[in-house]
């Protein structure tokens, strides 16, 4: 018997779920992410997609993927753990922020208002998952040569992927080196700028292992809602009571 062929990619299904939620009552929406560790191929595409999407400078990363080798030869496995911001529903980081620059928004997304952040880094110290990194104003192209007319050179290269910051939070940020987000704490924001236009987060769409799921955990019709029923479900450092909105399946 012919195996039933897939009718739509999980990404399409989730994007439809997303649309449905956006059309409904936003105050009812709670964005969540589920990461199926068994499906993770440890490819780091999500890490780089996030860096590219948000034009993250050196030393700033929102979603590293942790690799580890387990077992003894010949019974060995590599294991991978992608780590975005957990978007804790009881976030220690926002409590730490003296000026309410970072806070949990209505949909449970923990955001940072770059314009308000004074860069004290207390939230970095407070986050149990090291999910926050600070923008110290570094450049990937720093130290590369110039020599126009002979090679492409530093400036052109920088213009290509560094000078103009990404539209994080749907905003135009000043040319790099002229203010925020340099000097700010930075972290995963669930790609709100993409969600705003009906798109899934960049790490989700690029996940070659289809290990990363996103959606409204309050929507019973959504894929994410179904996945949260899985017995394989767990969260990182559950004991701290941070109540991450990012769940894992093992």
């Amino acid at each position: 018997m012919a195996r039933i062929l897939p009718t739509e990619d999980m990404l399409i299904r989730m994007q439809k779920d997303l649309k449905r939620s956006l059309a409904g009552d936003m105050s009812e929406v709670r964005w969540s992410m589920v990461i199926d560790v068994a499906k993770c191929a440890g490819c780091h595409a999500c890490t780089i997609a996030c860096v590219a999407e948000n034009k993250l400078p050196p030393g700033v990363v929102y979603r590293p993927v942790i690799e580890e080798e387990v077992g003894k030869y010949p019974h060995v496995r590599q294991r991978f753990l992608p780590r975005p911001c957990m978007h804790c529903q009881n976030p220690p980081c926002t409590k730490a922020c003296p000026v309410k620059a970072t806070y949990k928004n209505e949909q449970g997304v923990v955001v940072i208002n770059y314009k308000h952040c004074i860069g004290c880094r207390y939230c970095l110290v407070a986050c149990p998952y090291s999910a926050r990194t600070s923008d110290f104003g570094e450049w990937y192209t720093q130290g590369t040569p110039e020599f126009p007319g002979k090679i492409v050179g530093k400036t052109k290269a920088a213009e290509g992927y560094e000078t103009v910051p990404a539209a994080e939070y749907g905003k135009d940020w000043p040319k790099r080196g002229h203010g925020s987000p340099v000097g700010n704490a930075r972290k995963c924001h669930f790609c709100l700028h993409r969600i705003a236009v009906g798109m899934l987060p960049a790490c989700v769409t690029t996940c070659v292992g289809r290990a990363t799921f996103f959606g409204n955990r309050n929507d019973p019709e959504s894929l994410i809602y179904q996945l949260l029923g899985s017995p394989r479900r767990f969260r990182l450092k559950e004991e701290l009571g941070t109540q991450p909105a990012v769940y894992y399946l093992h």
């Binding site: 409590k95 922020c97 003296p98 000026v99 004074i118 860069g119 923008d135 340099v182």
Partner: peptide
């Protein structure tokens, strides 16, 4: 000098967060 954005300390007045011990 340790702050990333010193000139924004006025935020302590505009939007103090009293659940933060730094405040």
């Amino acid at each position: 000098l340790d702050l990333g954005h010193f000139f924004r300390i006025y935020r302590f007045i505009i939007s103090p967060n009293f659940s933060s011990l730094m405040t």
